[in-house]
Design a binder for these strands. Structure first.
Lengths: 132, 132
DNA sequence: GCTAAAGCTTGCCATCAGGGTAAGGTCAAG
DNA sequence: CTTGACCTTACCCTGATGGCAAGCTTTAGC
C-alpha cells in the first residue's frame, strides 16, 4: 500500500517547487507521473526519492543534463562507479574553474576598491581603472 | 576631425561583438549612434572609449544595470568617488558570496569523489551520498 | 448543500547576456 | 557589373527558474 501524494506535498517533502517538478518531468528526468481522474499528478515514495536525488544533485550544482546522466547511472544496476566518478570530477573541474575566474575578478576589483579613497571628490581610481 | 568607424571596427577595437554593441545601445547604456545615409552606425573615439569602459566593467563581472550606473557616474563630473566605491563593494560582496557557495559545493563534491573508489563495481559513494 | 479557499492544471511571458540565423540593403575591389 | 564583405532588423535559442492568468477540483466551514 504505497502512499501517494500530490505535487504540492511532493514539493514540500523534497524542497523543490511544484513548478520545478513539472519542469523536470517535461525535461525527461522523470517518467510522466500517474494522474488522478481529475488530472492531478500523484507521486509514490520511490518517485519522491528520485525527486530528492535531483534536489541534492542540483544543490551541488550539477546541470539538468548532468543530473539526467546521474539518474540514469543511479537507476542502472550495471553501472560502474568509475562512470559516476568521472561525471563528478568533470563537474568538479567546472566548479574549480568558475571559482578561479571569480577570484580573479575579486582580486582586481579589490585592488581597485582599495585604491579608491571613497570620499566626496569626483576623482576615482575605480573609474580610472575601468577606463584604462 | 574625428575619425569615425563602423560597428565592425568598433567591435574589433573594443573586444566586444557587434551584436553586443547594438544590444547595449538598445539597453540604453549608450546614446543612439549616428548613422550614415545608408543607416550604418558610426562611432567616434569618445564612443569607442565608452565601449571599452563597458567591456572592462563586464569583464569584472558587473551586470548591465551596474555598468549603466557606473557609466552615469563616469560621465558625471559632480559624482563622488564614495558612490563609485559603494557600487564596487556591493559587487565585490556578490562575488565573494558566489565564491563561497561554489567552494561549499566543491568541498562536498570533493569529499564524495574522494570516497568513491571509481572502479568497475556498481557500488558508488557518490550516488549513495546524493540519495542521502 | 452551498460557498469560499486552497490546490491543481496548462500556457505564456520574463529573466540575463548574449549567440545564431535569415532576409535584405550597401559598399569596395576586381 | 559582379562578388564578397559588411551592415541592417527581426526573430528564435540558451538554462533554470519565477510569475501570472484562466479555469477546474477538492476540501473545509457553515
Amino acid at each position: 500500500m504505497t502512499t501517494l501524494v500530490t505535487i504540492g506535498q511532493a514539493a514540500k517533502q523534497t524542497g523543490l517547487s511544484a513548478k520545478m517538478i513539472r519542469h523536470y518531468e517535461e525535461a525527461g528526468l522523470l517518467k510522466k507521473a500517474n494522474r488522478t481522474d481529475a488530472g492531478y499528478r500523484l507521486y509514490n515514495s520511490q518517485q519522491l526519492q528520485q525527486l530528492s536525488f535531483i534536489k541534492q544533485a542540483r544543490t551541488l550544482g550539477f546541470s539538468i543534463a548532468q543530473v539526467s546522466s546521474l539518474l540514469d547511472l543511479w537507476r542502472n544496476p550495471q553501472r560502474s562507479s568509475k562512470e559516476v566518478k568521472q561525471l563528478a570530477e568533470q563537474h568538479l573541474d567546472e566548479i574549480k574553474q568558475k571559482v578561479a575566474e571569480l577570484q580573479q575578478m575579486q582580486k582586481v576589483l579589490q585592488q581597485l576598491a582599495d585604491s579608491c579613497c571613497g570620499d566626496d571628490q569626483p576623482q576615482c581610481a575605480i573609474l580610472d581603472g575601468l577606463q584604462r
